[in-house]
Design a protein around this nucleic acid. Structure first.
Lengths: 211, 211
DNA sequence: GTTAGCATGTAAGGAGTTACATGATTTT
DNA sequence: AAAATCATGTAACTCCTTACATGCTAAC
């Protein structure tokens, strides 16, 4: 009984919620959705699918059954489809959020990726929890930095500075998101929001290295 | 034969290179040095120390032996000290860098933290390797983004944008560092170079803009 | 004299990767 | 028909965390 409480499961549930897929495609969509944020390998995906199958959240369809028509020739091997239990479990995971949804970088990232399916109230809780968490981290690191500044060489100091700025940027990003959420009930719910290619959009970006 | 090729070992070697310490203190210095970048627990530190002991890179001194005088009452339990082999191994790790030194976020971060002890040529190799790696990632993600943009909701898109900007920012940071290195800002090359505790140290600090 | 922090450890396990093994289908 | 890519999977291993167990010492 492996526990599988990881991010992968949530991500797979979310992707299969959109449409049934087979493993190979799933992995590509997964890594493409998460962008620079994270990447998974087959060695974790397939065992995860097997587990989810065992729990009844998904079913698999062999190559014989042709469910969806209008698909070009490509007949994939095994198509995984979300069950009713799977959908329910997904919604539960999205709603019953704990601190890990903002404490853990990965968890937060995946939760954020599915914000379009998340209730506004829950979104706000996650964004604010995340912001609080990062501000605590900033306080702590800044404090220990002022205590030990003189003992650090300039490269280490530079690493610290860059790290701090990364986190500060993420906080600013969260601030904007939170304002946006408060202002427009659901600012972007629809399609094709223009990602402004405006040259200088400030420049957030924390990412840096997750812990 | 546990392999222990991780970042922890390198970091511990580097910290013990400065001065002998006991585990508890080591862990605090570790997490304070790495700042927002990373954190370790005792559950990984102590086994690591045990391993390094077995390999002869460090020795342990019980509370009986009072090596350094002029220490206030605080008699710590076990003090770990780097051996000659340990020092050699550390220098080797810093010099014989492979791609993992720039592919892996953690590895890069810890290597960077010890740049003050790293040869200028090796520093440059790591910085440029890292930059190339990030630019490849940018290309890849940007390409797959333009292919699948319309299929993503606005939150997912926002996550992508934020991630991309994060990486772009790190590339700019690397650019500044590389320029700075080329300009010959090498602050210290040899042994026991005094790190000036000057408040607003110019140092090798590439960022013209003060934080 | 009890809470808080210092100090050292271990067992169990979580979450994933790498490298391998295997075969089908498309492209060149 | 060879090469590339699609597609599925497994075994072994890495590296670290959590939770626990245990005591010492300083502060209130």
């Amino acid at each position: 009984m492996s526990k599988r409480t990881g991010v992968l499961e949530l991500a797979v549930l979310g992707l299969l919620h959109e449409s049934p897929q087979h493993g190979y495609e799933l992995r590509k969509r997964l890594n493409s959705m998460l962008g620079t944020f994270r990447a998974f390998s087959y060695g974790s995906l397939y065992p995860c699918l097997r587990d989810m199958l065992g729990r009844g959240w998904i079913t698999e369809e062999g190559p014989a059954a042709a469910g969806t028509p209008a698909l070009s020739g490509k007949r994939a091997k095994i198509v995984y489809r979300l069950t009713a239990e799977g959908k329910e479990h997904f919604q539960q995971l999205l709603t019953e959020i704990g601190p890990s949804a903002w404490e853990d970088d990965d968890q937060f990232g995946v939760h954020f990726a599915f914000f379009a399916r998340t209730e506004a109230e829950v979104r706000m809780r996650i964004l604010e929890g995340r912001r609080r968490r990062l501000e605590e981290r900033l306080d702590y690191v800044r404090a220990s930095l002022t205590r030990t500044r003189e003992r650090l060489d300039s490269y280490t100091l530079e690493l610290q500075r860059h790290g701090l700025e990364s986190v500060e940027r993420e906080v600013r990003w969260l601030n904007e998101l939170i304002s946006s959420e408060r202002a427009g009930a659901t600012p972007h719910a629809g399609e094709s929001s223009p990602v402004s290619p405006t040259e200088t959009t400030g420049g957030p970006s924390p990412a840096a290295s997750p812990s």
